[in-house]
Design a protein around this nucleic acid. Structure first.
Lengths: 231, 231
DNA sequence: GCGGCGAGGATTGTCAACAATCATGTCGCC
DNA sequence: GGCGACATGATTGTTGACAATCCTCGCCGC
């Protein structure tokens, strides 16, 4: 690998922009109902509008934004019932994957997971929400990849993406970040000890905090159309 | 709803073309490794190349075709191991959905399912593979929609799509079609009688024939590059 | 005869301008 | 003073042409 990155071709730029927008949504830089206008984004990312359009289409398929014809795109507002359903599916998928992970785990896998987990811990310690988010994604990807079923892993990531718009509450909370860090450590431990029941339970319970935090936040202001401007 | 369908806008045409190509793949009109040329498709469907490009991107995301930059698109060749993994996930998802369907089922649902099922039966009797395929999809969509979790249903459809390229073996086989028809009838019956165990078992076993037929076909000619032209 | 090599054709990727559509604000009328 | 039609501006959707890339095939030198 030397000069390969000079020609990002087509899909790469599109993916890069989609990921960037996704990150801004997760980190709360972009709020629900906020509009995303193609030309503006094209200028910000220094690409042509065509590329932005494809990225927006991708984000719409992933469930992060909504697009109405001739009107534009806006980050999707997730209603609690939808979030509950998604988390229900996530629980099923992730426990299924956890149940299929061969135990005892390969030591190399444990080492790799520990590396990623420490990257996450460092980010949490530094209060770097963006790095924490990235490390968190990397951890889960590496963890579930061990189950051996690539398509199952893809589904898990897909469903995780769908609630990324609901993650801005927990993504910036130090309490939640610290809890996630500890749970990651426990997962690696369970993996190392070959404790399947504990691993499955950890994967299931790991989902609960962010789900409940979002639902609580939304339902606290259960008449969201009452106020229109800042609180 | 009155004059809504007059302006298909953008996404509808794209979806229509994607569906059309998907059908041709499932029915065996388009064989694996066959190339899909944008301009050719644009002419055939009487749309601009831009729309075809989006449709191909969609089909690539759905796992039906493969695209390499600057080289073009071709219908994907599924290797048996991948098919096994997909069916493994499908089994998990569909049994999960079947387990969540409220029983006893709403009579209206049973009536609707019976209607779709009879459409399928008629298509099988007439030997109309295309109509059978459509009715089959409609039946499964209606069946699993009863589980109440929209996102789970989407996942089920998504995974079903991924093996559509492997369906051309069974989609034209009268034996398989007749078997599927009978199994559909049994499912409706189990739904009506509130027999959950039977329903779940039927959903699981319903997947087996097409999976095994494909794997057997591929592994029978386990040196697929030997012959290049028509048999 | 055989392998590198370059020209040509086919196909995809990119671009900028044009057309269609929707939201907003303004003016005239009741 | 309120309400509706209209003009305007902002934004998206579409089109055709242009550029970059890759594969095929024939040619030349060895």
């Amino acid at each position: 690998m030397s000069v390969v990155t000079l020609k990002p071709a087509a899909p790469d730029r599109m993916r890069a922009i989609a990921d960037a927008i996704e990150e801004e949504i997760v980190l709360g830089w972009l709020l629900p109902r906020e509009r995303l206008i193609e030309e503006e984004l094209a200028a910000r990312f220094a690409v042509k509008r065509h590329v932005v359009r494809e990225a927006l289409a991708e984000l719409e398929r992933d469930g992060l934004i909504e697009r109405v014809p001739n009107k534009g795109a806006a980050v999707k507002r997730l209603d609690p019932e939808e979030v509950r359903q998604i988390y229900s599916v996530r629980e099923a998928l992730e426990t299924l994957a956890a149940a299929q992970i061969p135990l005892p785990a390969d030591p190399a896998v444990v080492t790799e997971l520990r590396t990623v987990q420490q990257r996450h811990a460092s980010a949490v310690a530094a209060g770097d929400a963006r790095a924490a988010f990235r490390a968190n994604m990397a951890f889960h990807e590496a963890l579930f990849a061990v189950c051996g079923n690539r398509h199952l892993v893809e589904l898990i990531q897909m469903m995780a993406q769908k609630v990324h718009g609901a993650r801005s509450i927990t993504a910036a909370s130090l309490d939640h970040l610290a809890l996630a860090r500890d749970e990651h450590a426990a997962m690696v431990e369970a993996l190392e000890n070959g404790d399947r029941a504990r691993l499955v339970a950890l994967c299931r319970d790991h989902l609960i905090p962010s789900r409940d935090a979002y639902i609580a936040t939304v339902e606290r202001r259960h008449a969201p159309d009452k106020m229109r401007s800042s609180p």
